[in-house]
Amino acid sequence: MPFTLFYCEDLADYPTLGDQMLRDRGSQFKDTLGWDLITDELGRERDEYDNMNSLYTTVTDEEGQHIASSRVMPTTGQNMTSDHFSHLTGGVAVSSPKIWETTRFFVAQKDQRGAASALMWAGSRMALDSGVEFYLSITGAHLLRVFTVCGWRPEVIGRSGEGENEICACLWEVTPKVLARLARLAGIDPAEHDLRFHNPAPTRAMVRDGGAEHSVKAAA
């Protein structure tokens, strides 16, 4: 299951994958869930937080099709949770280098479980490498079950809305133990994977130097 990690400012270097991701976001969050979001004429959903250079973790299938992704932002700069959802986090505009925000968690219907675990593994791995201890997320309540099945049960800090519209602020602790569990569930061999996993930065540099789309392949 290949992973590709890239920053928003490098979207142009991932024309196919980036397009698929933004279109899947539009179809999932705007069309299906009815969130108040803006899409362009091609159905791509993108907002001001993307434009602040968010980081994407993406998972593709063996044919290179987008099957899962999420958007990551540090909470030390401007972020969605503290700007719009602090009523779900006890009124606290959460801000710390130890806490990252993850939003727009997307998993395609097929192979939901493996892809979601893989996505969470990649996100956790990246967080641990940066000394981050928690992920904070605003998410649809419908995803809580998916998260739990995938081996990363969140703590719900706050909720609002009802039924299909219910959203919650969720917290995940990131630890080596969590990482190992996610690797097991995603069928990833961390020992083998350690050698091939790269931070986004070198990927960016390689893309710039080589001009070709580069993806870091997982062992799975």
């Binding site: 980081l55 932002m73 940066s130 000394g131 931070n199 930065a201 070198p202 960016r204």
Partner: peptide, 8 residues
Amino acid sequence: GSLGAFAA
């Protein structure tokens, strides 16, 4: 590689 980034 660092400019605009936030992952270590």
